[in-house]
């Protein structure tokens, strides 16, 4: 029962909250939907912290796709043996994890130390940064320390298939039973973080302007109904 709650109900609930929260905010709170930058107040710390964190997240995102979405069989088919995959994962993931954590720490200190930034930071802003630190901190620890000292955990045979099974609505929760606790906590914390996305500054993740390079540089619009 507990297993079902943790690995079926909880992920679906959090993702549902995320989706409906996003839809609600998109429809009714469009004016609050932005990347709430504080660069206007402070540039020096942000210049280091923000790119470090964000590029780290980009790398980590790619890494998670490589580990969770792409099945182990695919790597074997490509001729990449397990040990090679893990060496890559430890180095790549390790660098990404360190970037994210270091960036977050810089941003966190900045948020507390720089008056102008702190005064305009909301509860949600602090919550986000701490939650990210917790999740990313565990992730970095797992990749860099746990994997190299305790045991090189093969998540591609348990967590990966479970994660994919969520998408086709036949969650293989039984696979999660054998997963080390640290990994479990990381996953649950991450899903909790997903649920908070619509209510925090993290929404800007969903407005990455990917179509900017392909659109016309100059935009013309007519006022409603002008060209009827």
């Amino acid at each position: 029962m507990k297993e079902i709650f943790l690995w079926v109900i909880f992920p679906y609930i959090t993702v549902t909250i995320m989706i409906f929260g996003l839809l609600y905010r998109f429809a009714y709170r469009q004016l609050t939907w932005a990347a709430p930058s504080t660069e206007f107040f402070e540039k020096k710390w942000l210049r280091i912290g923000s790119p470090l964190f964000h590029w780290g997240i980009v790398l980590a995102f790619i890494g998670h796709i490589m580990g969770m979405v792409i099945p182990r069989g695919f790597y074997l088919w490509l001729g990449i043996p397990d040990w090679l995959y893990h060496v890559g994962a430890i180095y790549g993931g390790g660098i990404a994890g360190l970037m994210v954590v270091a960036g977050l720490i810089i941003l966190f200190i900045r948020k507390m130390v720089i008056d102008k930034v702190r005064i305009h930071a909301t509860f949600a802003d602090f919550f986000t940064i701490i939650a990210l630190l917790v999740v990313a901190g565990m992730g970095a620890y797992m990749t860099i320390i746990y994997n190299t000292t305790v045991n090189e955990y093969e998540y591609r045979t348990t967590i990966g298939p479970w994660f994919r099974s969520l998408f086709y609505f036949q969650p293989k929760y039984e696979l999660m039973a054998s997963v080390p606790t640290l990994f479990k906590v990381h996953i649950l914390a991450a899903f909790a973080l997903f649920a908070s996305i619509p209510f925090t500054r993290l929404v800007h993740f969903y407005s990455i302007p990917v179509n900017y390079p392909s659109r016309a540089p100059q935009q013309y619009r007519s006022r409603a109904q002008y060209q009827k």
Binding site: Q30, L31, W33, A34, A35, P36, S37, E39, F40, H204, S207, P209, Y212, R215, P217, Q218, Q219, Y220, R221, S222, R223, Y226, Q227
Partner: peptide, 29 residues
Amino acid sequence: VASCPSGALYKRDEDGIVLVDQEECRGWR
């Protein structure tokens, strides 16, 4: 207008006034 990643800035067809769509602006600066 050309610098806006979200396409939130635009020039009005009928009078050329350049405006920021407050709903589409994502604060990329």
